[in-house]
């Protein structure tokens, strides 16, 4: 048998041992939502559609012109801290 095939055979044997519980396994991907197992319920994002039936009250704030204030194009977040520091990728 060629070495690569031997490697595949042994790798699969290892995977099967994990899958059949002969090796300790962490929680399965779907974590059973059984009662008393709160930790299985992870993060559900807040629903984006919740605002769909509500209406924002600040009507006057809507801007329609195409010449916004320049400051809106200047990043003011944490990127300004690292903007100049991040190095370009090598070899690209």
């Amino acid at each position: 048998m060629n070495p690569k095939r031997a490697l595949i055979r042994s790798a699969l044997a290892g995977v099967v041992a994990i899958g059949l519980g002969q090796v300790a396994v962490s929680n399965a991907a779907e974590g059973e939502p059984a009662a008393g197992k709160e930790k299985c319920y992870g993060i559900a994002k807040a629903g984006q559609n919740d605002c769909g039936t509500a209406t924002h009250a600040c009507a006057g704030l809507a801007r329609k012109d195409n010449a916004p204030d320049e400051w809106k194009y200047v990043a003011k977040g944490t990127c300004t801290k690292m903007g100049g520091k991040l190095n370009p990728p090598r070899g690209k």
């Binding site: 929680n27 991907a29 992870g42 559900a44 944490t78 990728p89």
Partner: peptide, 23 residues
Amino acid sequence: RDGTPDREDGADDVLVWREAQRV
């Protein structure tokens, strides 16, 4: 976190998956 990355260069290949209902 305060926004300061621990690395400032180098490529990242990121594996994303869901396990026990968490990403």
